[in-house]
Design a protein around this nucleic acid. Structure first.
Lengths: 327, 327
DNA sequence: CATCTGATG
DNA sequence: CATCAGATG
């Protein structure tokens, strides 16, 4: 079950598996109504009235306040760095100096404790690491200006805790959980593990934390929730990250008393991607996915100042996202 | 037997296996003579009289002639390129323009026919390739201005012919054989194959060719013949490329009517290396090995003009070597 | 098209 | 310390 760099013999059903159905939908209007398959709303991006503002912030704005007018006191960044060592060689850590977050969470560090470069220690920040048993696979990290009360790796369930996917830091007013959620894989070979085992257990974990203190969850959650969260919803229904099962699990999480901070503030945002595959020049063409999130306990909504996607910052196939709060 | 990228579990006895014995030898003179082990001549470089010229050419000199005063009419270069594709990206092929050899033989191309870049075809040269069944492993190539009468891959023995190690081109006056001789491997895991199977069969092959026409053999023969052919003979007696078995097989080849063209001309040359490991900054420190050779049928000796080692030419962990002949 | 590992030299 | 392949995303 855990990734072991074994060969993947499953058929790859993720290229353009729905081409035929797409054509049917596009031709739907000229169809005499005899077809029983009605246009599926969740396949395509919701149409908005002419002139709707679909923009969203890509840079931090210190003037953004809570609804009741309090200024931000905390900035948290989450970034899938796709290899900590390569990211650091590319000067990724300069982000700390340039943007000065109080906390930086990183995912997909691909680096065991033993192989952490010494430059990964940064003046002014405490750092915490969780790494996979498999060398060079997955892994998460956290830089914090304030020393947390406690830091825990994993979610306390052995079968989920050997890939370095989760770090939990307890602070005075909240738990901060960063996670690199398991990818369902090419051919969806790991979809059942992801949705039926990981997602359910992880949500239980978050609910238990939430019962004690408000929770801020951030990271690469490896799901685009709605058609507006990826460029090509129609052709990706069988692709890892946009299957019904994954999307439903995210919806379920929001039903348990959590909010997607970005969508809360920018329900009409479009092209708000945080990930672009390195292939096919996708970033230049802005063919991307929103896979990175700040999910908050509902009672933190009142402290929310902003949730932004720093799309112009390079250094990985993901860009950083930043949350600002008044807590 | 052929390389399959399998794991190597043999103990690695190749670091500094003889440290103790080295000390004994160094202390030999102060020893009362009770030790039965006499200083082994083949362990260390032969001392030369004060003032002996140990130099050798590293650049082509058109004035070099045969003993009987004929000018060179043929230039052949041999170069282990350590990955044809990487070497070409580093502009390795500019060697053809800059040095204008009639023939360029390359070894360790690590490239199947199918993956040859189209830039590997060069105006003014015919090119020939032999590649291993295993992707990215071994392989040889040959560029020739004159089209050979015939070109053959391998030596006609199946167990030796699946790694692309040999190309034979028949020309009017000689056979040209280029070879990338099997490395005996870390822990000498392949020493028996190399010396008892490859070396014996390869020498038979060369002798059969030599019975028809004179032979020019060039390539990475993966052996430093004498202590003068590597920087650290004492500490490398159990390292692939300087074992007794490999050296004896080379001596044996020379006994069969062939000459090492470089040593023929420069018997006193020192530090005449053609290979330096990328590790430990070896090239800058000139800690190297002479592994690349032009070996000639004895009856070609009279046509020999020069045999040089182009040590300043970069692009691989080997440098090119060049032969000039009047044929 | 990036990152990584592990084999090879 | 280079090359390459193959796994992973």
């Amino acid at each position: 079950m855990p990734a072991k760099r074994k060969s993947n013999k499953a058929s790859s059903a993720n290229e353009e598996p729905e081409a035929k159905q797409v054509k049917v939908e596009e031709a739907g209007a000229s169809n005499g109504g005899a077809k029983t398959s009605k246009p599926k709303k969740e396949d395509s991006v919701e149409s908005l009235p002419e002139g709707t503002d679909t923009s969203f912030p890509t840079a931090f704005n210190p003037d953004k306040e809570t609804a009741d007018g309090r200024k931000a006191t905390l900035k948290i960044t989450s970034w899938n760095v796709n290899g900590l060592r390569a990211w650091m060689k590319g000067d990724g850590l300069s982000y700390l100096k340039t943007h000065n977050p109080d906390i930086l969470c990183v995912q997909e560090t691909k680096c065991s404790q033993a192989k952490l470069p010494k430059e990964s220690e940064v003046e002014g920040y405490h750092s915490y690491w969780s790494s996979a048993d498999t060398e060079g696979y997955a892994g998460t990290g956290m830089y914090t200006k304030t020393k947390p009360i406690t830091v825990t790796n994993g979610i306390g369930i052995e079968k989920h805790d050997n890939e370095g996917r989760t770090i939990t830091a307890e602070f005075d007013k909240f738990f901060l959980v960063t996670s690199y959620v398991p990818n369902s894989g090419k051919g969806l070979v790991r979809l059942d593990y992801r949705t039926k085992e990981w997602d359910t257990d992880f949500q239980e974990y978050l609910k238990k934390l939430d019962a004690k203190k408000p929770v801020i969850l951030c990271g690469d959650l490896n799901v685009a929730h709605t058609p507006a969260d990826l460029k090509n919803p129609k052709t990706n229904k069988k692709t890892a990250g946009f299957t019904e099962a994954e999307r439903e699990q995210f919806t379920n999480l929001l039903g348990e008393g959590f909010v997607d901070s970005f969508r809360e503030l920018y329900p009409n945002a479009r092209d708000c991607f945080s990930f672009w595959t390195y292939m096919m020049n996708a970033r230049a063409k802005n063919v991307g996915w929103r896979l990175d999130y700040f999910v908050l306990s509902e009672r933190l909504k009142s402290d929310l100042c902003d949730s932004i996607i720093q799309q112009s910052i390079m250094g990985s196939d993901h860009c950083p996202i930043m949350l600002s709060m008044a807590v």
